[in-house]
Design a protein around this nucleic acid. Sequence first.
DNA 1: CATGAATGAGGTTTCATTCAT
DNA 2: TATGAATGAAACCTCATTCAT
Lengths: 223, 223, 223, 223
Amino acid sequence: MSEEFTIRTFSSDEALVKERRNHIVRCSTKVFTKKGYDRTNMRELVKVCEMSAGTLYHYFGSKEEILYSIINSATSQQAGSMEDWANELATASPTIALVELMRKFYEWHDDNQNMTLFAYQETKNLPDNARQSIFDSEARILAVFEQLLTRGIEGGEFNIDDPKLIAHDIVVLGHAWALRRWHLRKHWTFKTYVKKQTDAMLRAITADKNTAVANKQRKESSK
Amino acid sequence: MSEEFTIRTFSSDEALVKERRNHIVRCSTKVFTKKGYDRTNMRELVKVCEMSAGTLYHYFGSKEEILYSIINSATSQQAGSMEDWANELATASPTIALVELMRKFYEWHDDNQNMTLFAYQETKNLPDNARQSIFDSEARILAVFEQLLTRGIEGGEFNIDDPKLIAHDIVVLGHAWALRRWHLRKHWTFKTYVKKQTDAMLRAITADKNTAVANKQRKESSK
Amino acid sequence: MSEEFTIRTFSSDEALVKERRNHIVRCSTKVFTKKGYDRTNMRELVKVCEMSAGTLYHYFGSKEEILYSIINSATSQQAGSMEDWANELATASPTIALVELMRKFYEWHDDNQNMTLFAYQETKNLPDNARQSIFDSEARILAVFEQLLTRGIEGGEFNIDDPKLIAHDIVVLGHAWALRRWHLRKHWTFKTYVKKQTDAMLRAITADKNTAVANKQRKESSK
Amino acid sequence: MSEEFTIRTFSSDEALVKERRNHIVRCSTKVFTKKGYDRTNMRELVKVCEMSAGTLYHYFGSKEEILYSIINSATSQQAGSMEDWANELATASPTIALVELMRKFYEWHDDNQNMTLFAYQETKNLPDNARQSIFDSEARILAVFEQLLTRGIEGGEFNIDDPKLIAHDIVVLGHAWALRRWHLRKHWTFKTYVKKQTDAMLRAITADKNTAVANKQRKESSK
DNA sequence: CATGAATGAGGTTTCATTCAT
DNA sequence: TATGAATGAAACCTCATTCAT
């Protein structure tokens, strides 16, 4: 089993380390996601972080560790938000919850378009254990959708074979808004994109009334 | 309007230029898509092409021009194949044609997984006019699906609001097989992935019988 | 004449300065002699000294001053020990005293192998006045042997042209045990090395009986 | 068993590689041995070699590889010379041969004083396999003296217990001229140093006449 | 047309030392 | 007195591209 990917620091003041790393991640995210990892050099990074190279290397051991932190921070923060939103919608009807959650998810990728592409680009080049950690956050996001879909199936509201795959499709179509903005922007605004994808998804997974009733009865009789 | 992205050569023997460029593109595709553009250096490129640096620079003006050629060659070749297949299926029923075309398209991305991610990664960094040329090929692929969907709608077989968006979704879910192989491979084989996505797509867009008849009539009465 | 090499401090409490400097020298000797001067950084030094960089720089003005102190401390301590031992052996027969003194000297270099090589390596790079100070201690060690040899000559026990050179050879062959351990360890243990070198030395410098008597007479008649 | 220490090159023209490496080694030896390995930077090295950094790194993979080449070149060249001289003296009497060989050996270290110290300093920091290769050359030099001493013993001319140790002492006292020049130069010129060490060595190892004759007879009777 | 040696700017990272706290 | 975060010059090495052969 591979060890956790660790980030070097020369400081032992945990609060300070956390603060400085946050600062560095926040500042470098912009330039990294805009220009790409390899095309951004440390000189530039240091400039946007408004610190000296030496200071930066007190809190990170390498450029790659910063890369990891940027992607990991974005992805795990996203996963956390999704889980929070899902909790808030735990009592809403699956349909309403799904619409809302998709909207939130798609909004995140609208707000962080560069990050979405950046994560696709650079996760590949991370060391195994670092990549695994990113994938874990990704999995949490997929799980949020999958659980909601499963709730809908159990309630008879949705009629889906493979909720895992549908969860995956929802996520991919959200990413697509960021990954393929050049094509999409020509034809749809963000609002219409979300609306249309949400509608299409609901149409595809909503059980028709007969089926819904049948499903519900089947569930209940099997208790 | 921006000028076309041109590729420098010192040779005037067009046939030779074409042959050498093909050779270079073919040889360097593998190493570029595997290791990434920035992480592949010219020394390695020259080695896999089995030529000297000087020769390579006779037929290409820069590393970036090779990058462009690789992506452009792959994308336009893909667009060409899609158009050919669509022509072959021009008389088939839209449903059958769609299933077949999706399978072909997904197979392409299964066979060229690295290329799919590579194109997403690197197209961004190309100069405007080069990027535009890639996008044009992408647009041809989308058009193939859109036209087929439109044919289905016109024939009353499909019931779709926005065939452009559906075409886009089909394409994105094909790309996903390559982009997200780490997640997908855990749960589905290529065959089941294609089957499930195709089925889901058909379920979502196929008009139920009543609707189909109604659609057809409406279409015809509006002529 | 060049000024003495001085070591900066920001403190005026002499006892504290002495204590702290001793501590630093003692702690850093190990890591310096093991890894080399240039390959040991201040971070590591500060860690083994269990103090902050700031504190360390209160008692030393630079890394080089620590280097000097380490070598000087070792060499002058060695010189002191040799002088003490020589005094203890002042009444022993020259032969016995020499055997004993060589053993002590060789033992020192067996116990401080890294230091011996380190002093050879780094003394060269010290500023002139610092180097001179090290050389003075070295000279004291040579003097101990030279005086003992001279006593033996005067007593007619040794038959030597140039006791200064013999003293030098004794010292060098002691250093060799530390400098050339990789070669020597293959063929000899420390014990046999000392025994053999001592025997060889005695054989080379001991006057045969006739010569011894003649020498003694010559000396006395020349008074 | 450890692999050989290899030196990277990007060229496949062996003759050119050899020539350039020779040039680099020759030029950088001076500056390296004068200032030390760590205190000499690549900028300076490149300047004295009159080439660009890129060119230098075509023929060596790292600064350390140059270090190795410098030491290895000097040591193996020295070993070669010693073997050649020993061959030329193969028919001379052991006493004459030893005197001559010592003179040659000491002259080498007089001519290459910086190198001698440099080799002692830096061999320690080389990787294992590189260090081993240096030690092998060292061993060849020791073997030259040991074989000569053994010839002298077999011919009854020398009376030595352990020729390996004597060989070692001869070598160390030669090195000492370079390592300890600051002390030695105060008291002896090179000529007198060689003369005195040679004389002392002969006195120590030459069998007295009775012993010599006895040795010879014993040898012959045992045939 | 083909070669591959040469370039040198620019890449990432380290380091001894200082000084505000 | 003691701390350790901050500095920024300078370290080693790589690279796309050229041009003499």
